[in-house]
Amino acid sequence: MIVDVHAHWGPWFFSMEVGAVAVNLAVMDRYGIDLAVVSATEAVVYDVRSGNRAMARVLETTDRFLGYLTVNPRRLADAERDLAELLPSGRFVGVKIHTDYSGSPVASARTRDALALVAAYDLPALVHTWDTTPLDLAQACADIPGLRVIAGHMGANGWRYAVEAANSVDRLWLEPCFSHTEAGRFAAVAAAVDPRRLLFGTDATLIDPAAAYGAVLAADLDPVTAERVAWRNAAELFRLDI
């Protein structure tokens, strides 16, 4: 069993043809990924209102997806409406916040307001992090009671800050996806944080799962930790019955 906690459905603006659900499923099959928690690319890079509704329709078509409802911190009224309208389906299990595409840094007041809203709904949030921003996310966690967050990309090249962030609060998880694959990155993180904070995320279908899967493979984890990374921690975080 493998659960991908960082996936997308929909087209990207690069020279790639990855927008169809069938592509997601084929890419998951390449790597034995059973379940993916996905956000709509339309919601992430353009319009949350239409993107989240498109995501909701797709979630009705396959049981191999669970959904992230995308929140744009610039549009909190839309977020409240989307949460009220779309959560009752039971198919959305978390919130996605992309700090770059929304022009809303983790430490900005509007993103902190968005995270407080997410915490009020008791949903985990996958937040894009890069460089030092996992530390900002950890601070938000410390300041907002009950907030549970995944540091997307575990800071990318800033993974050392992600380690510091994960060790400073008890509600911050890490997932490794990154198109650049520094040798030993995931092994170093796995050795430095509580194994209950490690998740598996790929950024598919923007990035092929080879990048994250290979990083985990290279870390040569013991079976207990590997199983935690693969699905147990995700099942606990998202309260999945698997």
């Binding site: 694959t181 040798a183 092929d208 080879a210 990048a211 899967y213 290979g214 990083a215 493979l217």
Partner: peptide
């Protein structure tokens, strides 16, 4: 780009 990057990643991508 051994030893700076993970050699298994492009190998795995090629395999799949």
């Amino acid at each position: 780009r051994t030893p700076w990057q993970e050699p298994v990643v492009p190998r795995l991508r090629l395999a799949r």
